[in-house]
Write a protein that binds this DNA or RNA. Sequence first.
DNA 1: GGAACGATTGAT
DNA 2: TCAATCGTTCCT
Length: 186
Amino acid sequence: MLDLPDDAVAAAKVILGQLLVREINDYKLMGKIVETEAYDQKDAASHSYRGQTPRTDVMFGPPGRAYVYFTYGMHYCMNIVIGKPGYGSAVLIRAIEPLKGIEQMKKKRGTDNIHQLTNGPAKLCQALSINKEFNGHDLSKLPLNLQLGQKIPPSQIFKTTRIGISKDTHRLWRFYIKDNLFVSKP
DNA sequence: GGAACGATTGAT
DNA sequence: TCAATCGTTCCT
């Protein structure tokens, strides 16, 4: 497992460039994380803002687990839990660059356009078959594993406001790799 | 028990 | 620009 900072904003930058590996039966899918967002319990846009609830339980647990939630009645999104137990913060994975298992991802997504496979938080969950079963899963192990990739130099990291939120919209807590073609909204 | 809303996506 | 679609949370 990677050594991640306790602070979600710092972690969101470190997580860029790392690898997400999904093993399904006899094959593996892999992608490089190219876009993240930070969420913290002091931040009104975060699910953890209103305290620990059945849904957000995992966010307040040990770091390095997956926090997977269901939204809009049809989509899953995946986070990496950050910080010490008892503190509710996480990093949302918004986009990955497909590296292995691209044909299987195309099948799962129902498109042949490689740029449409994983350029959004719910899209990448569909491409990697990540669902509620992975909520609380320890990401140091397969079948869903966060592995060491490359460190992205600060000069290559862009930051903007987060996407799709209605509160605390001013925070520049969205990060992505400059010029990467698999980011959701460059 | 009821209602509003959502860390999205894809079609129009 | 807008509908799809349902679990979570909060209110009565």
